[in-house]
Write a protein that binds this DNA or RNA. Structure first.
Lengths: 199, 199
DNA sequence: CCTACCGATCGGTAGG
DNA sequence: CCTACCGATCGGTAGG
């Protein structure tokens, strides 16, 4: 990578590249993220950037990973002390809304952008995005099932239908926020979630 | 354009370009739609393609227009005989689901793809997408308001919240269909809509 | 980490 | 509608 830099500095540079990549990719997509643009933004050479990842696809995979890590810190980690089942499910959704409300990434939800961009393609990047999506939905389903078992949700609740509804609410939030700049988007999301998740 | 072709042939070529563009753009995005790719697919030269539009941006705007026209034929036009208010709203949503179910475009909903791709940018293409979105939602709102006035929806219904919910259901349909290839996506959408729109 | 390249492709133009 | 170009940028490599 760099014959002059220490391991620590190398790691720090990699982090800088990934942070900038997340910001760019959330707004312009994982293809709009070009090595040249990244190099200019960071005041580096293209070869310097690419040296950390080898190929653009490896960079894209690293960015997807970094996005998953960020989401994990922003949502599940923040509510890990909340009791399992319905309370946890409610807390997860609220943390999710709050994450989008705070505009952590300039282009809104990274995974919505990446999923829409790559759902019509093939390859490891698409697979990584779809896989993380599946994992997250499996996690949500677990809490829905627990809530049903505890009697906090009606016994005839269809867990997958329930997750479908939650995902729809979150996709709509991102949509109204990013495309229409609608300041009421988050309160609409919260209202829809309150209706879905009884107190 | 073409000194050898008649006006009719020219119009036909333009139509061919737009049809192919819609297919490409729904799957690969409006940026992934390149002049060279389009020319190869259609067995034309790049200059031949570009001659119909002048610039790529003009082509993109024409594609957005063509997508709006297609959606109009596929959804509102098909249910224009259904009584206004709740019946019409239900028919519109069903035609919308059916449009996505039939996979009219290979990449799913053009506007979901285009909106996600351009919501972080500026310029006439973004404005066109956002404008059409606003128009369509205004149309939906009209029917919601009529349904409320007719007593077919509760008097305390918030029209914008209602539209938010519908949009979420449709976005989730496209999401589960395109990313997860979930064959149950359409039936989930219909179930969610049935719950929202009383019979 | 850099400079200095490479072939391929981008959007677009000139001229017929 | 075509051929034949243009400069700019793409991802990527060689070599230090």
């Amino acid at each position: 990578m760099s014959p002059r830099n220490s391991v620590l500095e190398t790691r720090h540079t990699r982090r800088r590249i990934l942070d900038r990549s997340l910001a760019i990719a959330s707004a312009e997509g994982l293809e709009g993220l070009t090595i040249g643009r990244l190099a200019t933004d960071l005041g580096m050479s293209k070869a310097g950037v690419l040296g950390h990842f080898g190929t653009k696809e490896t960079l894209q995979l690293a960015v997807v990973d970094a996005a998953a890590e960020l989401f994990n810190e922003e949502v599940p980690q923040r509510v890990r002390d909340v009791p399992l089942g319905l309370p946890r499910l409610r807390a997860l959704c609220e943390a999710w809304v709050s994450h989008l409300e705070r505009g952590v990434l300039p282009g809104g939800c990274f995974f919505t952008a990446a999923a829409t961009e790559f759902d019509g393609r093939e390859g490891p990047v698409r697979d990584a995005i779809a896989g993380l999506n599946t994992l997250w939905q499996r996690d949500l389903r677990l809490h829905v099932q627990r809530a049903i078992a505890a009697g906090d949700l009606p016994g005839d609740t269809d867990p997958d239908q329930f997750i479908y509804d939650i995902v729809g609410i979150m996709l709509a939030l991102n949509h109204f926020q990013q495309l229409q700049h609608d300041p009421l988007a988050t309160s609409r999301a919260r209202r829809a979630l309150t209706r879905l998740l009884p107190a």
